[in-house]
Each structure stands twice: as C-alpha cells, then as structure tokens.
Simulated assay, not measured.
Amino acid sequence: MKNGIHPAYRPVVFRDKAAGRSFLTRSTLTSASTVVWEDGTVRPVVDVETSSASHPVWTGRARVLDQAGRIEQYRRRYGRD
C-alpha cells in the first residue's frame, strides 16, 4: 500500500435513530459530532436511519406476500394454466 493516499481507518460509533441503539465498529467515515463511549473515550458518531436493530427483515416484522394468490391472479388475468 502507498503511504498517505488511504483514509484513516479508526473506531467510529454508529447510532441508529429509529431503534435508539449504538454500536462501535471501525470505519473510514468522518463526522464532526462526537460521543463519549462506554469505556470513557470520545469517539466520532455517525447517525444512521436504519440498522439491523430497526430493519424489518432483521427484527422479524417483515411482511410476507401471498405468492400463491399472486400466481392465481396472473393466471386469471392472462388466461394461462
């Protein structure tokens, strides 16, 4: 790797606005806002709208479409068996 061309890779706190949860991971994202993390260190914080804590697929609140009904509707509409 060449020196001086890659962004800094450091610990960053991601805060999910919908679920009210935060998690610490490493990233190259930068942020002007900071937060004091659980261990007492000041970390940059990035606010996100959706994470695994609030996404319907990961929380089990996803809707399942009635596939059989959609196939029958297609067959009625286009006259195919």
Rank of each mutant, 00 (worst) to 15 (best):
F23Q: 00
N3L: 12
A68E: 14
R26N: 07
A32M: 09
S31H: 11
A18Q: 05
R61Y: 01
T28P: 07
G69W: 13
N3I: 12
R63I: 09
V46P: 02
I71D: 15
G79K: 13
V36H: 10
T34L: 07
R76K: 08
A19N: 04
G60W: 01
W37D: 15
V57E: 00
H55Y: 04
R26S: 05
K2Y: 08
R77C: 08
D47T: 00
L24G: 09
P11T: 15
Y74V: 10
T59P: 05
V13T: 09
R15C: 09
W58D: 01
V45P: 01
Y74H: 11
W37V: 15
S54T: 02
T50V: 03
P7A: 13
L24C: 09
R61T: 14
A32C: 07
D66W: 08
G4I: 04
H55T: 05
A53K: 00
V12D: 09
R15E: 14
A8N: 13
A19P: 01
G69Y: 13
A32N: 14
I71Q: 14
R77F: 13
Y78V: 12
T25C: 05
R15T: 06
R63L: 07
Q67H: 11
V35F: 10
H6F: 13
Q73S: 15
H6P: 06
D16P: 08
P7S: 10
S52E: 02
T34G: 08
Q73E: 15
R10W: 08
R26K: 12
K2M: 02
M1W: 05
R10N: 12
W58F: 09
G4S: 03
T30C: 10
R15F: 11
G20K: 02
T25V: 04
V12A: 06
